[in-house]
Nucleic acid binder design. Structure first.
Lengths: 319, 319
DNA sequence: TATAGTCATAGATAATTATCTATGGTTTAG
DNA sequence: CTAAACCATAGATAATTATCTATGACTATA
């Protein structure tokens, strides 16, 4: 058999001929003329190199080889169909894979979106990458993930960013700290305190530093600690104060409390970030759509279903 | 995916691209130019409706969908190959089915040919039909079998017949019959004996009747018995004489013996008979080839490896 | 034995496919 | 930074395919 010349169309037609036992019937069913079917059949026979049907009592019945060919056709066609369905599902985003890169702090809130999405789309498999701002920027540069969450999106023409959630940064002290009761508390009053800060690559640190700079304040004593969790514990044990995302505090308030500092919370927002050029996997697209629809329920203070919708729109145009 | 437009050629090319990770390499391997492969790939992508490869570190690697497509390709191609091999085997006659219709008497000798053939070709499955001449003629008329064995082939332009074995008809009597010792025994001397004969539709009967007629002899007493075996037993028990194929006697000589009658044995021969128009299944063709090669070993008195060879030749021309 | 139904073939055409050469853009490796 | 390698696209062409209409042959049935 000349496999090379074989087409699925021929197999479709042939399978129908075997089922109906009649060229005319197949022609009608497939909206073709009878001679067309006749010729298709002839060509298939030439490809196979062996007669595949014979006349028997006015019907066309497959020969021995034809019978085997029929089974083959069924088999191949149904496999192709399964694949076809798979592609459709993939395309709708209901199936497949995407990866999302999260800045550390965002891991406190994203599960509230990822969890329900995952539940609703069990066939979608998500890789979550987590790191500080710098690490994420590196991944972003290397195009390693499909989707990112930054509070300060990298600026680039190629980058699309949609804010979706406010990320207020607050100053925290140990539980029952006397600072909590001070009125009109200012940073001036705290600048001699020891501050426990994330490493310079972190977004929280970056924002705080910028604010300090613009306020013309220099801290006396700082200590660098690499994880939000470690900072929380340190603050709770009285080692100092810290600046954290309010979401971190809300997530695990044990032993710490927010201080009512003037000028705080510092405003910042999380953004979904994608590269315009990169084709977003349908599953990621579906995730963003899902997010857009569920922001209001998931958070008190979403920042932009609208912005996410615009991002989706922009991506749709790219397709 | 537009299954309808899918071809095996595209899958072949695609599979190779995935393996090599390079259009140029595939182009060389398949003796095409690089732009050709590029275009094939493009078309396949359009058929699938989704990107199937992407560039990664200078190599082409399948996307998620592409990976699934590659697996599909492998699967489909290998299935088509298996079928292709099957067709080849079928074509060589090493596999498949044929049916052969035997006149009763021939069943005593055909096993000597069918047995070894079957052993040598275990994938060939043979249907053996047996009946008397008339029944076989009916089957022949209805084109029910691929191949027949007759001693007197039906005459028709459409019929090809090749004698392959002599089938001497002899007169038999009970063991130790006194007729056995008579010199120059003639039918005249026996005509008053009771003859146990096959029914008129049988070839043996037909031949014997014809001989009697041409010799101008009429028998006094006959009795019709439908099977050679029953006749043998009847003769052995002294109920009369009979005309049987010498092969029957040779096969089971118990209780009977051949009488040395003048003019006997009557000559007759078995023929393989096929319809010229009918396409002989390759397995049947292979059987005839096999027979042609083994006649000399199987029988002392073959009648025509030559004739069988000619028949094969004639069929070959028809193909 | 007409008649209707079914299949095969011929002839024609538009569409699609398979390929090639030439060329320009990107990426990779020195 | 340049050369080499590699891929994409354009343009051209020959071959193949998909179809159709018209017609002829065969077959079963009224």
């Amino acid at each position: 058999m000349k496999v090379r010349q074989l087409t699925f169309r021929l197999l479709q037609v042939y399978a129908d001929v075997v089922r109906t036992g009649s060229l005319t019937a197949t022609a009608n069913r497939l909206h073709l003329t009878q001679p067309t079917v006749s010729q298709q059949l002839k060509r298939l026979r030439e490809i196979v190199g062996e007669p595949i049907v014979r006349h028997e009592e006015g019907r066309l019945v497959p020969t021995e080889v034809g019978q085997a060919l029929y089974q083959l056709s069924q088999d191949l066609l149904s496999r192709a169909d399964v694949f076809s369905q798979y592609v459709e599902e993939y395309n709708s985003g209901g199936r497949g894979h995407f990866s999302i890169g999260l800045v550390n702090t965002a891991q406190y809130v994203l599960p509230r979106l990822l969890g329900p999405f995952s539940q609703a789309n069990p066939q979608v498999d998500i890789t979550v990458e987590i790191g500080n701002r710098q690490q994420m920027l590196n991944r972003f540069e290397r195009h390693e993930d499909d989707l990112y969450v930054f509070s300060h999106p990298p600026l680039d023409d190629d980058v699309l960013a949609a804010p979706f959630l406010s990320n207020p940064l607050v100053v925290v002290g140990p539980e029952a700290s006397h600072w909590a009761d001070v009125n009109d508390l200012t940073m001036e009053a705290l600048k001699d305190q020891r501050f426990l800060l994330r490493e310079p690559g972190s977004a929280t640190r970056h924002t705080f530093d910028a604010w300090l700079y613009s306020a013309g304040i220099e801290l006396r004593s700082t200590q660098q600690i690499a994880s939000n969790e470690a900072i929380r514990l340190a603050v709770a044990s009285g080692m100092g104060l810290a600046v954290l995302s309010r979401h971190v505090v809300a997530d695990a308030p044990k032993g710490i409390q927010e201080l009512p500092l003037q000028g705080f919370p510092l405003k910042s927002r999380w953004h979904f970030v994608v590269r315009r050029e990169r084709r977003l996997p349908p599953a990621a697209y579906r995730f963003l759509s899902f997010v857009q629809g569920s922001l209001a329920q998931a958070f008190e203070e979403p920042e932009g279903g609208l912005a996410v919708a615009e991002l989706l729109q922009a991506l749709k145009v790219e397709r």
